[in-house]
Design a protein around this nucleic acid. Sequence first.
DNA 1: CTCCGGTAGT
DNA 2: ACTACGGGAG
Length: 348
Amino acid sequence: MRLRSMMTRAGSSLQSSISCSKQFPSKPKTPNLESEPKLRVYVRKRKLTISKTEEIQPEKPKLESSLIDIEDFSYKKTNGSVLKQGKSSKLLVKVGETPPANWVEVLKGIREMRSSENAPVDTMGCEKAGNSIESPKERRFAILVSSLLSSQTKDQVNHKAIQRLLANGLLSAEAIDQEEVDEETLKKLIYPVGFYTRKASNLKKIAKICLNKYGGDIPSTLEELMLLPGIGPKMAHLVMNVAWENVQGICVDTHVHRICNRLKWVNSTSSPEGTREGLQLWLPKEEWVAINPLLVGFGQTVCTPLRPNCGICSINHLCPSAFKDTPTKSTSSIRRTKKSSISIAKKF
DNA sequence: CTCCGGTAGT
DNA sequence: ACTACGGGAG
């Protein structure tokens, strides 16, 4: 995959305020810390503090380089509900200072498997979108649109939809915002991407916002991207990574979420956002962009949601979940459990 | 019939 | 936390 070089814009200061969240995932179990007494003491102390008080303003800890760059932020959707708060406490940071054992080896193993395997994901879909476009502004817009369309949609389908938009000259904010381009038109053009009706509507709105507020360009910060209809955390991080080449966080999709939990790379998270935060605590920032395509491909071929192929996995000796069924609490496995128990119930 | 490379509203 | 939104593929 190649990223076109371009000027990265330096903005993106996300210093929004943050009121320390009480939404901190309440799963403070102490996993493998027993082996490191020194750390354990510290962690326990922190943990206690956290659970007692919401407001924590500790001294800036000496962190590994990768963590300094995570900035506090909060963003909300139009209805005013707070969708996400940035890193919520220093506790996470401290715990995260200890990366999971063998993670380097695990990563290396996955890379090797990925290089021999052919995963459906060879590139991130939205990267392709920009390749043939000269103007940086339009290239970024194309990437944004491609991200929007790509959710719950096969890469190929998404790619074709983008090509149709392009062929009709409808891959810029100016073009889409025109009066005569209605949602019906867009809908037909992007069909059959997943949720095309809603996406057509969102596309129209996004074009208007981009034109009116950003001069036809796309927002350059995470929080502003999230304010666009249909753009959530996953896509916002993807766009920051690819369109702006300004890495604010890890793009966590269902694969990254599931695999990180299987590997115990995060502390049993129930949402992709939780996984993102947990992963960012210890994964060196240089890996933040690459980790997504790597794990997505791995998740499609080897570490599948249902019946993972642990037998062919070269790192199964390092995986806490290897050969165990009913693995993590990924959304799909929850759903599966629920449904299968229903169908079992029907049988009897 | 079940699974998908999310998001937003309940 | 739970579910609707769409359609295609296995």
